Amino acid sequence: MSDKSLAERVEQWMVGQMPIIQMHGGTSVVREADEETGEVVVELGGTCSGCGISNVTAENIRRDLIMDFDEVSEVHVKVPSTGDQGASTVEGGRGGDLQYETESAGHF
């Protein structure tokens, strides 16, 4: 078992496995990673908002996180349909104070 938290490991995984998000102007942030329940919440922003294939990206993230992390049992990926996204990013498109709507963006 790693000394890093589940959230840190998922963030690191996102940097390595999902560089396409940043390459296309998108951002992502891990909002929750509960080691006890196995639930992970990832939020996509930037150009992911309104992107026609963000549902495919979200499904790939869901599937791959569950496959790559034994302790992850449920993954929720939130994609804003409109609104402001955080401007600050760090490596791999991480960061920002992304804001998602409470209503589904129609993808999930």
Rank of each mutant, 00 (worst) to 15 (best):
G52H: 02
E36T: 13
G92I: 09
I53E: 01
S28T: 09
E8G: 00
M67S: 14
G83L: 03
Q22I: 01
W13P: 04
I53A: 10
F69K: 09
G106E: 06
D97N: 05
C51T: 01
S5R: 10
A58C: 02
M18L: 12
F108I: 06
T27M: 10
S5M: 04
E11L: 07
Q12K: 12
M67F: 13
D3C: 05
V30E: 02
T89F: 11
E39W: 08
Q12N: 12
T57L: 15
G106N: 10
Q99S: 14
D34N: 15
P80K: 09
G50P: 00
M14A: 10
A58M: 04
H24G: 10
V10I: 13
S104W: 12
H76L: 03
V90N: 14
W13L: 00
D97C: 01
G106V: 06
A58N: 03
V75I: 08
L98R: 11
E71C: 15
E91T: 15
G92F: 11
V30L: 05
G25M: 02
G16I: 04
T89W: 13
M18N: 08
V90Q: 13
G92S: 07
F108M: 12
V75G: 07
V29H: 05
M18E: 09
K4I: 00
M23N: 13
G95P: 08
F69Q: 11
P19F: 09
A105D: 15
G106M: 06
L98A: 04
V10G: 07
T47K: 06
A7K: 15
Q99A: 14
E39D: 11
R9P: 02
R9L: 01
A87W: 12
V15K: 12
K78D: 15
H76S: 08
A58E: 02
E11Y: 10
G16Q: 12
L44P: 01
M1Y: 09
S28G: 01
A105W: 12
A58R: 07
A33W: 06
E71T: 14
V56R: 08
D34Y: 10
E91D: 15
E32Q: 06
V10N: 07
R31E: 11
E39H: 14
S104D: 11
V42Q: 05
R62E: 14
S49F: 00
V40Q: 03
F108T: 04
D3M: 09
V75S: 11
V56D: 01
I20K: 12
E43K: 09
G52A: 01
T89I: 15
N60L: 14
P80A: 13
G46E: 03
A105V: 05
E103S: 13
H24E: 10
M18I: 02
T27P: 00
D34A: 03
G86F: 02
D70P: 03
D97I: 02
D3E: 12
V72Q: 11
Q99D: 05
C51G: 01
L65T: 01
E8D: 07
V79D: 04
E91Y: 09
I53C: 03
T47Y: 02
C51R: 00
I21V: 14
S49N: 00
M23A: 14
R63C: 06
E91S: 14
Q85K: 11
E32L: 10
W13C: 00
E36A: 14
H24Q: 13
E43G: 13
P19E: 06
E8N: 09
S54R: 01
S88G: 05
T37S: 15
T37Y: 03
C51F: 02
M18W: 15
R94D: 13
